[in-house]
Amino acid sequence: MMPDLGLVDARFGRIWSEEERSYVVSTLAAAGYTFYHYSPKADRALRRDWRQPHSAEQTAMLGRLSAQVRATGMRFGIALTPVGSTHPFDDQARADLARRVADLDAIGVDDLAIFFDDLRGDMPDLAARQAEVVNFCAGLTKATSVYTCPTYYADDRILDVVFGERPANYLADLGRLLAPDVQVYWTGEEVCSRAIGPAHLARVARELGRKVCLWDNYPVNDGARMSRFLHLRALTGRDPANAVHISGHALNPAVQAHLSCIPALTLPMLYRQGEDYAYGAAFNDASRHLLGDDFAARLQDDVLLFQDIGHERLGARAERLRDRYAGIDHPAARDILRWLKGDDIMTDEEVQTQ
Protein backbone atom coordinates (compact mmCIF):
# COMPACT_ATOMS: atom_id res chain seq x y z
CA MET A 1 0.00 0.00 0.00
CA MET A 2 1.32 3.45 -0.97
CA PRO A 3 0.35 6.32 1.34
CA ASP A 4 0.14 9.96 0.28
CA LEU A 5 3.81 11.02 -0.07
CA GLY A 6 5.02 14.57 0.35
CA LEU A 7 7.76 17.01 1.21
CA VAL A 8 7.40 19.38 4.15
CA ASP A 9 10.04 22.03 3.47
CA ALA A 10 10.13 23.26 7.06
CA ARG A 11 13.75 23.28 8.15
CA PHE A 12 16.03 25.96 9.51
CA GLY A 13 18.80 27.34 7.32
CA ARG A 14 19.03 29.02 3.95
CA ILE A 15 16.00 29.01 1.69
CA TRP A 16 16.47 27.13 -1.55
CA SER A 17 16.77 29.07 -4.78
CA GLU A 18 13.96 28.81 -7.31
CA GLU A 19 16.18 26.61 -9.48
CA GLU A 20 16.84 24.22 -6.59
CA ARG A 21 13.18 24.06 -5.61
CA SER A 22 12.09 23.53 -9.20
CA TYR A 23 14.45 20.55 -9.49
CA VAL A 24 13.12 19.01 -6.27
CA VAL A 25 9.50 19.46 -7.32
CA SER A 26 9.95 17.87 -10.75
CA THR A 27 12.08 15.02 -9.37
CA LEU A 28 9.69 14.08 -6.58
CA ALA A 29 6.60 14.40 -8.75
CA ALA A 30 8.12 11.97 -11.23
CA ALA A 31 8.78 9.56 -8.34
CA GLY A 32 5.14 9.55 -7.24
CA TYR A 33 5.02 12.24 -4.56
CA THR A 34 1.64 13.92 -4.23
CA PHE A 35 2.13 17.09 -2.14
CA TYR A 36 4.65 19.83 -1.37
CA HIS A 37 4.29 22.01 1.73
CA TYR A 38 6.36 25.20 1.76
CA SER A 39 7.35 26.50 5.20
CA PRO A 40 11.08 27.23 5.59
CA LYS A 41 11.86 28.65 9.01
CA ALA A 42 13.88 31.47 7.39
CA ASP A 43 10.77 32.83 5.62
CA ARG A 44 9.94 35.44 8.23
CA ALA A 45 6.58 36.32 6.68
CA LEU A 46 5.41 32.81 7.60
CA ARG A 47 6.85 32.79 11.11
CA ARG A 48 8.30 35.62 13.20
CA ASP A 49 6.73 38.35 11.03
CA TRP A 50 3.66 36.35 10.00
CA ARG A 51 1.32 39.32 10.44
CA GLN A 52 3.13 41.10 7.60
CA PRO A 53 2.53 40.09 3.96
CA HIS A 54 5.23 38.71 1.72
CA SER A 55 6.89 41.27 -0.51
CA ALA A 56 5.70 41.57 -4.09
CA GLU A 57 8.79 39.67 -5.22
CA GLN A 58 8.24 36.86 -2.70
CA THR A 59 4.54 36.65 -3.58
CA ALA A 60 5.38 36.32 -7.26
CA MET A 61 7.90 33.57 -6.48
CA LEU A 62 5.32 31.64 -4.45
CA GLY A 63 2.81 32.03 -7.26
CA ARG A 64 5.29 30.49 -9.69
CA LEU A 65 6.01 27.68 -7.24
CA SER A 66 2.30 26.98 -6.80
CA ALA A 67 1.80 26.85 -10.55
CA GLN A 68 4.72 24.47 -11.04
CA VAL A 69 3.71 22.12 -8.23
CA ARG A 70 0.12 21.97 -9.43
CA ALA A 71 1.21 21.46 -13.04
CA THR A 72 2.97 18.24 -11.98
CA GLY A 73 -0.25 16.95 -10.42
CA MET A 74 0.90 17.47 -6.85
CA ARG A 75 -0.96 19.51 -4.23
CA PHE A 76 0.69 22.74 -3.12
CA GLY A 77 0.53 23.95 0.46
CA ILE A 78 1.92 26.76 2.59
CA ALA A 79 2.30 26.65 6.36
CA LEU A 80 1.82 29.65 8.62
CA THR A 81 3.26 29.67 12.14
CA PRO A 82 1.15 32.36 13.88
CA VAL A 83 3.43 33.17 16.78
CA GLY A 84 1.49 34.77 19.65
CA SER A 85 -1.95 34.24 18.13
CA THR A 86 -3.24 31.79 20.74
CA HIS A 87 -2.67 33.84 23.89
CA PRO A 88 -4.68 35.93 23.42
CA PHE A 89 -6.78 34.74 20.51
CA ASP A 90 -8.50 38.11 20.34
CA ASP A 91 -10.07 40.31 17.67
CA GLN A 92 -6.68 41.51 16.50
CA ALA A 93 -5.37 37.97 16.11
CA ARG A 94 -8.52 37.00 14.20
CA ALA A 95 -8.19 39.97 11.87
CA ASP A 96 -4.50 39.27 11.21
CA LEU A 97 -5.13 35.58 10.58
CA ALA A 98 -8.03 36.30 8.24
CA ARG A 99 -5.88 38.71 6.23
CA ARG A 100 -2.94 36.33 5.98
CA VAL A 101 -5.09 33.33 5.07
CA ALA A 102 -6.60 35.43 2.28
CA ASP A 103 -3.07 36.31 1.11
CA LEU A 104 -2.12 32.63 0.90
CA ASP A 105 -5.37 31.71 -0.82
CA ALA A 106 -4.63 34.37 -3.43
CA ILE A 107 -1.24 32.77 -4.12
CA GLY A 108 -3.01 29.46 -4.75
CA VAL A 109 -2.93 26.72 -2.12
CA ASP A 110 -4.54 23.32 -2.12
CA ASP A 111 -3.41 22.71 1.46
CA LEU A 112 -3.23 25.26 4.26
CA ALA A 113 -1.13 24.36 7.29
CA ILE A 114 -1.07 26.07 10.67
CA PHE A 115 2.05 25.13 12.61
CA PHE A 116 2.83 25.47 16.32
CA ASP A 117 6.14 23.59 16.31
CA ASP A 118 9.12 25.04 18.19
CA LEU A 119 6.96 27.47 20.20
CA ARG A 120 6.52 27.71 23.97
CA GLY A 121 3.90 25.27 25.18
CA ASP A 122 3.63 25.89 28.92
CA MET A 123 0.53 28.09 28.60
CA PRO A 124 -3.02 27.61 29.88
CA ASP A 125 -5.55 25.72 27.75
CA LEU A 126 -2.93 25.18 25.05
CA ALA A 127 -4.77 22.50 23.09
CA ALA A 128 -8.05 24.43 23.18
CA ARG A 129 -6.50 27.68 22.01
CA GLN A 130 -4.51 26.00 19.23
CA ALA A 131 -7.55 24.08 18.02
CA GLU A 132 -9.53 27.32 18.02
CA VAL A 133 -6.95 29.03 15.81
CA VAL A 134 -6.75 26.09 13.37
CA ASN A 135 -10.52 25.73 13.14
CA PHE A 136 -10.89 29.48 12.59
CA CYS A 137 -8.43 29.38 9.68
CA ALA A 138 -10.02 26.22 8.29
CA GLY A 139 -13.35 28.04 8.16
CA LEU A 140 -11.85 30.84 6.07
CA THR A 141 -9.50 29.22 3.58
CA LYS A 142 -10.28 28.14 0.05
CA ALA A 143 -7.80 25.25 0.45
CA THR A 144 -9.33 21.79 0.25
CA SER A 145 -7.17 20.32 3.03
CA VAL A 146 -5.96 21.75 6.34
CA TYR A 147 -2.97 20.51 8.35
CA THR A 148 -1.51 21.42 11.70
CA CYS A 149 1.64 20.58 13.62
CA PRO A 150 1.31 20.53 17.43
CA THR A 151 3.83 22.10 19.76
CA TYR A 152 4.43 18.60 21.11
CA TYR A 153 4.74 16.72 17.84
CA ALA A 154 6.57 13.66 19.19
CA ASP A 155 6.78 11.61 22.36
CA ASP A 156 10.33 12.92 22.76
CA ARG A 157 10.87 14.49 26.19
CA ILE A 158 13.37 16.95 24.71
CA LEU A 159 10.35 18.99 23.62
CA ASP A 160 9.28 19.35 27.26
CA VAL A 161 12.80 20.38 28.24
CA VAL A 162 13.05 23.05 25.54
CA PHE A 163 9.46 24.33 25.28
CA GLY A 164 8.06 23.64 28.73
CA GLU A 165 6.23 20.68 30.22
CA ARG A 166 3.46 19.49 27.92
CA PRO A 167 -0.03 19.83 29.37
CA ALA A 168 -1.75 16.68 30.63
CA ASN A 169 -3.88 15.05 27.92
CA TYR A 170 -2.57 17.56 25.37
CA LEU A 171 -2.73 15.27 22.35
CA ALA A 172 -6.14 13.79 23.22
CA ASP A 173 -7.60 17.24 23.89
CA LEU A 174 -6.20 18.61 20.63
CA GLY A 175 -7.63 15.74 18.62
CA ARG A 176 -11.02 16.06 20.30
CA LEU A 177 -11.26 19.80 19.65
CA LEU A 178 -9.89 20.01 16.10
CA ALA A 179 -12.34 19.80 13.20
CA PRO A 180 -12.54 16.13 12.13
CA ASP A 181 -10.93 16.62 8.71
CA VAL A 182 -7.83 18.51 9.94
CA GLN A 183 -4.69 16.44 9.41
CA VAL A 184 -2.07 16.41 12.17
CA TYR A 185 1.67 16.14 11.57
CA TRP A 186 3.66 13.86 13.90
CA THR A 187 7.37 12.93 13.89
CA GLY A 188 7.26 9.72 15.92
CA GLU A 189 8.75 8.61 19.19
CA GLU A 190 11.58 11.13 18.74
CA VAL A 191 12.01 14.47 17.02
CA CYS A 192 14.34 12.70 14.61
CA SER A 193 13.03 9.17 14.91
CA ARG A 194 15.44 6.32 14.35
CA ALA A 195 12.53 3.96 13.79
CA ILE A 196 8.81 4.38 13.22
CA GLY A 197 6.54 1.36 13.55
CA PRO A 198 2.85 0.42 13.37
CA ALA A 199 2.39 -0.10 17.12
CA HIS A 200 3.48 3.45 17.90
CA LEU A 201 1.37 4.97 15.12
CA ALA A 202 -1.71 2.98 16.16
CA ARG A 203 -1.34 4.21 19.75
CA VAL A 204 -1.02 7.85 18.68
CA ALA A 205 -4.02 7.51 16.36
CA ARG A 206 -6.12 6.20 19.23
CA GLU A 207 -5.04 9.07 21.46
CA LEU A 208 -5.52 11.73 18.80
CA GLY A 209 -8.71 10.27 17.38
CA ARG A 210 -7.35 10.27 13.82
CA LYS A 211 -4.44 8.94 11.78
CA VAL A 212 -1.38 11.18 11.73
CA CYS A 213 0.53 12.46 8.74
CA LEU A 214 4.16 11.53 9.33
CA TRP A 215 6.58 14.45 9.41
CA ASP A 216 9.75 12.44 8.90
CA ASN A 217 12.81 14.39 10.02
CA TYR A 218 15.10 12.76 7.48
CA PRO A 219 17.20 13.68 5.55
CA VAL A 220 16.99 17.08 7.28
CA ASN A 221 20.36 18.31 8.56
CA ASP A 222 19.67 21.77 9.96
CA GLY A 223 20.96 23.14 13.24
CA ALA A 224 24.43 23.50 14.67
CA ARG A 225 24.93 19.77 15.16
CA MET A 226 23.22 18.10 12.20
CA SER A 227 24.44 20.58 9.57
CA ARG A 228 27.90 19.06 10.00
CA PHE A 229 26.66 15.87 8.32
CA LEU A 230 25.14 15.00 4.96
CA HIS A 231 22.24 12.57 5.28
CA LEU A 232 22.48 10.55 2.09
CA ARG A 233 21.61 6.96 2.92
CA ALA A 234 18.28 5.46 1.96
CA LEU A 235 15.50 5.44 4.53
CA THR A 236 15.81 2.85 7.26
CA GLY A 237 13.68 1.99 10.30
CA ARG A 238 10.40 2.83 8.56
CA ASP A 239 8.06 -0.17 8.42
CA PRO A 240 6.10 -0.45 5.15
CA ALA A 241 3.19 -1.68 7.28
CA ASN A 242 2.92 1.91 8.59
CA ALA A 243 0.90 2.76 5.49
CA VAL A 244 -2.40 1.61 6.98
CA HIS A 245 -1.88 3.73 10.11
CA ILE A 246 -1.10 7.12 8.53
CA SER A 247 -2.83 9.68 6.35
CA GLY A 248 0.44 10.56 4.62
CA HIS A 249 4.23 10.48 4.88
CA ALA A 250 6.26 13.66 4.31
CA LEU A 251 10.03 14.07 4.46
CA ASN A 252 11.73 17.17 5.82
CA PRO A 253 14.64 17.78 3.42
CA ALA A 254 18.27 18.64 3.96
CA VAL A 255 19.76 22.05 3.28
CA GLN A 256 21.29 20.54 0.13
CA ALA A 257 18.42 20.39 -2.36
CA HIS A 258 19.85 18.05 -4.98
CA LEU A 259 21.35 15.64 -2.45
CA SER A 260 18.03 15.50 -0.59
CA CYS A 261 16.46 13.84 -3.60
CA ILE A 262 18.58 10.70 -3.20
CA PRO A 263 17.02 9.51 0.09
CA ALA A 264 13.69 11.03 -0.98
CA LEU A 265 13.53 8.68 -3.96
CA THR A 266 13.87 5.69 -1.63
CA LEU A 267 10.62 6.47 0.23
CA PRO A 268 8.30 5.25 -2.54
CA MET A 269 10.64 2.27 -3.02
CA LEU A 270 10.15 1.33 0.64
CA TYR A 271 6.37 1.21 0.36
CA ARG A 272 6.33 -0.29 -3.11
CA GLN A 273 8.80 -3.09 -2.34
CA GLY A 274 7.58 -3.88 1.17
CA GLU A 275 9.43 -6.84 2.66
CA ASP A 276 11.76 -6.91 -0.36
CA TYR A 277 13.09 -3.41 0.40
CA ALA A 278 16.85 -3.23 1.07
CA TYR A 279 18.24 0.20 1.91
CA GLY A 280 21.66 -0.38 0.33
CA ALA A 281 20.17 -1.40 -2.98
CA ALA A 282 17.68 1.47 -2.75
CA PHE A 283 20.51 3.99 -2.29
CA ASN A 284 22.35 2.53 -5.28
CA ASP A 285 19.25 2.69 -7.47
CA ALA A 286 18.31 6.24 -6.44
CA SER A 287 21.82 7.67 -6.70
CA ARG A 288 22.51 6.08 -10.09
CA HIS A 289 19.18 7.30 -11.41
CA LEU A 290 19.88 10.89 -10.33
CA LEU A 291 23.67 11.15 -10.67
CA GLY A 292 24.81 8.57 -13.20
CA ASP A 293 26.98 5.54 -12.55
CA ASP A 294 30.37 7.19 -11.98
CA PHE A 295 29.21 9.95 -9.63
CA ALA A 296 27.01 7.49 -7.72
CA ALA A 297 29.89 5.06 -7.28
CA ARG A 298 32.09 7.81 -5.84
CA LEU A 299 29.34 8.88 -3.47
CA GLN A 300 28.79 5.31 -2.32
CA ASP A 301 32.49 5.08 -1.41
CA ASP A 302 32.29 8.29 0.63
CA VAL A 303 28.94 7.95 2.42
CA LEU A 304 30.67 6.98 5.67
CA LEU A 305 32.68 10.21 5.62
CA PHE A 306 29.74 12.45 4.84
CA GLN A 307 27.08 10.87 7.03
CA ASP A 308 28.99 9.43 9.99
CA ILE A 309 32.39 11.13 10.25
CA GLY A 310 31.15 14.64 9.56
CA HIS A 311 32.65 17.97 8.59
CA GLU A 312 34.76 18.69 11.66
CA ARG A 313 36.49 15.30 11.71
CA LEU A 314 37.41 15.06 8.05
CA GLY A 315 40.86 16.55 8.54
CA ALA A 316 43.15 16.05 5.56
CA ARG A 317 40.46 13.98 3.85
CA ALA A 318 38.52 17.19 3.13
CA GLU A 319 41.06 18.25 0.51
CA ARG A 320 40.90 14.86 -1.17
CA LEU A 321 37.11 15.08 -1.27
CA ARG A 322 37.24 18.57 -2.78
CA ASP A 323 39.52 17.30 -5.54
CA ARG A 324 37.33 14.23 -6.02
CA TYR A 325 34.12 16.18 -6.64
CA ALA A 326 35.43 19.44 -8.15
CA GLY A 327 35.61 17.92 -11.61
CA ILE A 328 32.00 16.74 -11.67
CA ASP A 329 29.66 19.12 -13.47
CA HIS A 330 26.50 18.38 -11.52
CA PRO A 331 24.49 20.45 -9.02
CA ALA A 332 24.73 17.66 -6.44
CA ALA A 333 28.52 17.83 -6.65
CA ARG A 334 28.28 21.57 -6.04
CA ASP A 335 26.11 20.79 -2.99
CA ILE A 336 28.98 18.70 -1.66
CA LEU A 337 31.63 21.32 -2.41
CA ARG A 338 29.58 24.04 -0.74
CA TRP A 339 29.24 21.86 2.37
CA LEU A 340 32.96 21.03 2.38
CA LYS A 341 33.71 24.75 2.23
CA GLY A 342 31.52 25.24 5.31
CA ASP A 343 28.92 27.47 3.65
CA ASP A 344 25.96 25.42 4.90
CA ILE A 345 27.22 24.84 8.44
CA MET A 346 24.79 26.47 10.87
CA THR A 347 25.15 28.02 14.31
CA ASP A 348 22.81 27.99 17.31
CA GLU A 349 22.35 31.74 16.87
CA GLU A 350 21.10 31.27 13.29
CA VAL A 351 18.49 28.77 14.48
CA GLN A 352 17.37 30.98 17.37
CA THR A 353 16.77 33.96 15.10
CA GLN A 354 14.65 32.12 12.50
Rank of each mutant, 00 (worst) to 15 (best):
A195V: 08
T187V: 07
G327I: 01
T266N: 01
D91Y: 12
L314Q: 06
L304H: 05
D105E: 05
D90V: 02
A93W: 02
K341R: 15
L214F: 02
Q307A: 05
F163H: 13
G280C: 05
Y152H: 07
R203L: 09
D91Q: 12
F89H: 10
A93T: 01
D293I: 03
A332C: 08
Q68S: 13
L270R: 06
A202F: 03
N135H: 08
G164S: 07
C137V: 04
D160Y: 03
P198G: 01
A128D: 13
G73E: 07
P240F: 05
G32Q: 08
P88T: 07
E275S: 15
A168T: 14
N169L: 13
C261D: 05
G77H: 02
G248F: 05
A282L: 02
Q307H: 03
L5T: 08
G327A: 03
Y279D: 15
P150A: 10
D160G: 11
D302N: 00
G32S: 09
Y153L: 08
A172H: 11
T144V: 15
D156R: 12
F229H: 08
T34S: 14
D308F: 14
H37G: 09
R320K: 14
T266Y: 02
I345W: 04
R238K: 14
K41D: 06
V101L: 01
